[in-house]
Every structure is written in C-alpha cells, then in structure tokens.
Design a binder for these strands. Sequence first.
RNA 1: GGCACCGUAGCUCAGUGGUUAGAGCGGGCGUUUCAUAAGCGCUAGGUCAGAGGUUCAAUCCCUCUCGGUGCCA
Length: 502
Amino acid sequence: MNTKKYYITTPLYYVNDKPHIGHAYTTLAADVLARHLRSKDIPVLLQTGTDEHGSNIEKIAREKGVEPKAWCDGISADFRELWKTLNIKYDYFIRTTDPSHEAGVQAVFEKLLKSGDIYLGSYEGLYCSSCEAFYDEGELKEKNCPIHGRPVELVSEETYFFKLSKYEGALQEHYAAHPDFLSPRYRSQEIINFVKSGLKDISVSRTKVTWGVPVKSNPKHTVYVWFDALLNYATGRGYNPDGNSPDFAEAWPADVHLVGKEIFRFHGVIWPAMLMALGVELPRKVYAHGWWTINGDKMSKSKGNFIKAEDVVQEFGVDALRYFLFREVTFGQDGDFSMDTFRRRYNADLANDLGNLFSRLMNMAAKYLDHQLPEKPGESEVFRELSSWTPEIHRSIEALQFSDALEKIWQGVSKLNRLVDTRKPWELAKTDQEALKVFLHEMVWCLRLIAGWIDPFMPDTASRMHLQLGVGKTADGTPPQKVPPLFPRMPLEVKPDDIKTN
RNA sequence: GGCACCGUAGCUCAGUGGUUAGAGCGGGCGUUUCAUAAGCGCUAGGUCAGAGGUUCAAUCCCUCUCGGUGCCA
C-alpha cells in the first residue's frame, strides 16, 4: 500500500550558466520546508533538477566546442555540488536528458496527439535569423529586429500546437474553487486576469531545434523545451501515460511547486492545462517567490553582478546564508542582497543575539552545573511559555512564511537575553547556588527549544548547539569543553575611502 | 494605451473607521560584566504622497492629482 508523501518541487534549472544565489534561494526554501516536515515525521519527497534541452544549450555548447550532453553534464554537476555545499537534502535530482523522462515526454505527446489536444499546424511570424527568435510586430524597432536592427522576415514553420484555449474555462473554475492554488494571493490576480483575457493555443514543437526530445511519430520535430521541462514533476516520480510506476501514487498530486515569479504563469496556466488534458490531478499549490537584486541592481549576465553562494558560504558559513535569505525578506516579495546588509544582520542577529546568548549560558553551565543533564523543567514559566510558541512557528513554516517564523524565534532569543540580565546568574552564584542551578537548567532547556526551532533553517548550528546542550551526558566524565563561538563576530567592511581619510 | 498594486519615522516594512500611529535596523544617551567589547534600558515628536468628498469621526472608504512598480503570451 502506498501512503501519500508530501511532494515538494523546485523548478528545473536551465543549464545555460552556472548556478547563482537566485537558484539557491528556491532550492533552499524547498529544503527548509522539507526538513521541517521530516522533523514532524511527515514523509517528504523533494525533487529538483536541471532543464537541459533547447537551441540555447546547443548554441552554448557549440561555442565552447563540446557536445551538448557533455556541457549539460558539467553544469548539472555544478548544481548538485552547490546543493551539497548548501546542505540541501533532496530525494531526487532529475535531468530532462534522463531516458525515463524523455520516454515519458514522448508518451505524453503521443497521447495528446491521439486525444486531439495536440494538433499539427503552422506558425507564422517575424523571424530574425541573428537572434533565432520570433518577434511580434509591436516589439520591432522601426520594423527591424530590436536587438540587431536588421530586417526580419516573415517565416512560417510547421509546428504542433497544444490546445490551451480549450482549458480556459476549466482553469478559471479551478482558480475560483481553489483560492490558494496560486500563491501568494497578491501575485495570483495577474494570472487570473491573463486567463480571463483569453488563451491562445501554444506551439509545443520545433523543427529547427535538434537538441530536444524527438516527437516519436514525426521525428523531424522536437518537443519545445517548456513542454518538456514542465513534465518533469510527474515523470520524475514515475509518471508515464503508457503505464505509471507504482511510486507515482505516493507522490502525486504534488503539494507545492516552488517557482520564481518569472515562471509563475507557465506553472499556473500551461502546466495545469497539460495535466487536465492528461486527466491527471492538479498540484495543490504553486507558490511564486520574488527576486533578489544585488545592491539594488537586477542580477544580470551583462552586469556580471551575480553573488556566488560559495563565496558567502566560505566567509560566513552555510547557515548564515540560509538564515539571511529567509529572515531578511518575506518569502514571496523581492529583496535586496548586499554584503553590507548581510554583515549587519550576521553580527546583530547571529553573533550578538544568538551566538552570544548561547556562549554566555554555556559558559555558566560549564562552570556551575555539575555536568548533569537537567530534568525537563515542567514548572518553569519561561520554558512553558516558549514551548507554547511552537505551533505558531510551525504554522508559519508550513505557510512558507519563513521570515515570520524566524522573527518569532528571535523574539525568543531576545527574551532569554533579557531574562539573563534580569536574573543575574553571576550574582546568584555568590548568593544562592540552588536558585542558580534551577535557573540554568531552565535556560538549557530553552536553548534546546531554540535549537529545535532553527533546525530546518540552520541544521549545522542546531546540531552544534545540541551537542553542547547535552551537558553532562558525557559517560567518561570529561568536563564540557569551551566551544568555539557559533558565529564569530565579523568586522564591518572597511571601505577604501575610510582608509584614505586621515 | 488597458488592468492591477504601491507611496506610513533616516532605512526596511507592520497596521486599524474612533483614546497618545507601531516593529526591526541604524543613530543618540545611559547601564551591567556571565558572554563573541556582546547584552540590557531609554530615546525617533513622522503634514500616515497631495487635494477634495462620505461620516459624529479617516492613515485606513470614495474621487481626482502627482510619483513609483508589475502584468498585457
């Protein structure tokens, strides 16, 4: 018997360039959610992967003088390497060049051809041979290609169409019946209006592209990359219209597709329509997050202003990056990444608040607790209060409101710092040993609670904390060691201007 | 041009038809010493973009103006 697992997906990342912080963001969000659910003993499937077909990839590979597949192998490996660096635990990494996926795509195509949801037609458009792309009349600059400024030609190409228009009504009904299908709400209206304004059938094959999945019954066509890539969510779990793998039932329907806002429409319109055509249940939710700008600028290849996750990790550690990305900005909104803000938050939240709290308490625990693991303080008011926050924190994570969860957790950190100041354990040490122990016991348990809360976000830090919070469990009687700080304080960046001035 | 959304303390943002409009960060002042010179306390007097309207009462409702953003395959 199959039990349905909680199935989370990230988009498949296009292998036209090396991974940057934007890719990491989505995948980390998936990882945080997955870790949280696992900690509640909810079975989870997390799938990510790479999108490898299309003329762009073919072109890049040609420029580099390698076979397309070899190029894809390299970049795809870079992504997996980054997930490792970022401590992301996924269940399955799919590549659109995987034979099982390609077979699934072909079978889907044939099935829809048979049902009439895909039909052969021809596409007519204004084509620029330098761009290898079609343009609308409105996009042209003085009737020329907006990029090359050269004349475009009217070209017609045989292509297969998917009958997207047929699903206009069904999609609208679905949106109305499932108000959370497109999330967050403030991004959904655009999509709903778009569908309301009328859908046209879309081209789903190419005759000019060879690096793609061939249409089985007409191999001079390859399947258009979007159609190919979207299917991964199903084929990766064993979907094939000619016969599903038994695994498919435990994954489907997907619980949440995490996507960037730029591909929300593909996932909110085309993908559900494809599933309707296939008679497959729709995913429960598509959640679109925002973009990171870098120092206020859009990340772009031409500006070359990508932040490499590896560099940040190298200097500050994985957990600091994981923390920053989900604390700084409400998940869904756009945010700005700058080293200045990053350092500020690192020092204030991680080094000063949490790191120092942990350090001051662990020092006292080492000094004043006789290495005994204290009993859970049922009578402790603080501990009871903090414990009562857990459901709220969990709800926030499950609603993908990561920043809310972290904010609440940091209220706890702050509360504990205040409490230490109020109770002044260093004075109790001179006046009331018994009260001191009771207090430190409470604090140790509160820290365990915090460690548990931050675990999905900062798994390494959580385990380092846990290691020490087992105060006194040492069977051999060795005293607790003074541990290195969780987050060593970092100097704020010295600007060149500051040096010159004197 | 069409359709949405936004404009609240230096910065990032919460917020509600009704007593003195909030938080975090930064800044300023003070204070403790257990701790990573961290922590803790106090402090921001902001025309809630502007104008008009509805109302006993609007930052929150309506209209217009200005400024900004997104979507229109």
